[in-house]
Design a protein around this nucleic acid. Structure first.
Lengths: 128, 128
DNA sequence: AACGAATATGCTGTAAATCGAATATTCGGA
DNA sequence: TCCGAATATTCGATTTACAGCATATTCGTT
C-alpha cells in the first residue's frame, strides 16, 4: 500500500532528522554522519530505507554520495515534508540539528585545506 | 517525539482503514469489526493504538463504544487526514471499505428489529 | 445474582525493525 | 597496483510490533 510505504519511512527518528536536514539542501553521507553524530553504518542503512521508500535520491560524485530530497515526491510525502518544514521549530532535536548543520557548513567553507571536491564543498550553499 | 507518535499510528494498514472509515463519521466498535471483517480483539487493540497516539476519541454509550476522529487533531494528524481524504480513491482497500460501510449502515437502518439503541443506530447518519 | 452482548486485556509465538561491530566495496591518488 | 577515505553490507543479538486465541470486564436485562 502506497500510504504505508511513506509512513514506514517517516516513523523513525533518525530518518526524520535526515529529512529535516535535507529540507535545507543536499548533503553528502559523511556530513550527515557528522551532523547527526551517529555511526556511519547506521546513517547508511537509514538512507537506504528512505531511498526504498521514495523519500530520497542519491547521486554518486567520486567517492561521495550526495543525498537530496526527490525532485518530484509523491503527494503524501510532499505534504509531510511541508508539515516537517512548518512544525520542526517545536522539536528541539530538529532545531539542534539545523544549528549543527550550519556549524559544519561553516567549518567546511572556512577550512579550504580539507580535501573536498568543490562539488561537495559547495553543497551547503547550493540547494539545487 | 510528537512526529513519531503520529507516524507510528499511521504505519499500520488496519489503523489506516479505521481512520478512512471514520472520516465519514463515527462508528461503534462492533460495526467497525463487521466492516473491516477482522477479529474483534484485533480491532480493539488497534483502536487503543490510535487513541494512545491521539488519533481517536471514544465515548461509551451503554455497552457500545463510539469511535470518532478527534475534534481537535494536532496539525500533523490533521494534514494526514486530509491526505487520506484526498488520496484514498487510489487505494482499492479503502474504497471497498467505504462500500461495505454503506451496506452495513443500510442494513442497520432497514432492520429495526436489531436490538440497537437509537444513538448507535443513527451513527451512520449523524456525523457530529 | 445470573446471563448475554459488546468490548478490552492477557498470553504466547512469530515476524519485522533496529542496532553495534566487523567487514566488504568503490574510487581516486601515490 | 597498493592505500586510504567514503560508503555499503553482512552478521548476530535485541527489541518492538503484530497476530491469534482465550479470557476478563462492563453493562443492561431477566
Amino acid at each position: 500500500m502506497q500510504f504505508l510505504r511513506v509512513y514506514q519511512c517517516l516513523c523513525d527518528e533518525t530518518r526524520l532528522r535526515i529529512l529535516n536536514l535535507l529540507l535545507e539542501g543536499p548533503l553528502c553521507v559523511c556530513h550527515l554522519t557528522e551532523i547527526l553524530e551517529i555511526p556511519q553504518p547506521k546513517v547508511s542503512r537509514h538512507l537506504k530505507g528512505l531511498r526504498d521508500g521514495g523519500a530520497l535520491e542519491t547521486e554518486r560524485c567520486c567517492n561521495w554520495t550526495i543525498c537530496r530530497l526527490p525532485k518530484t515526491p509523491n503527494a503524501l510525502l510532499e505534504a509531510n515534508l511541508r508539515c516537517l518544514q512548518d512544525l520542526r521549530t517545536e522539536e528541539p532535536q530538529f532545531k539542534a540539528d539545523l544549528v549543527k548543520r550550519e556549524q559544519t557548513i561553516d567549518r567546511i567553507l572556512n577550512h579550504p585545506g580539507e580535501d573536498l571536491p568543490a562539488q561537495i564543498r559547495s553543497l551547503g550553499l547550493c540547494c539545487s
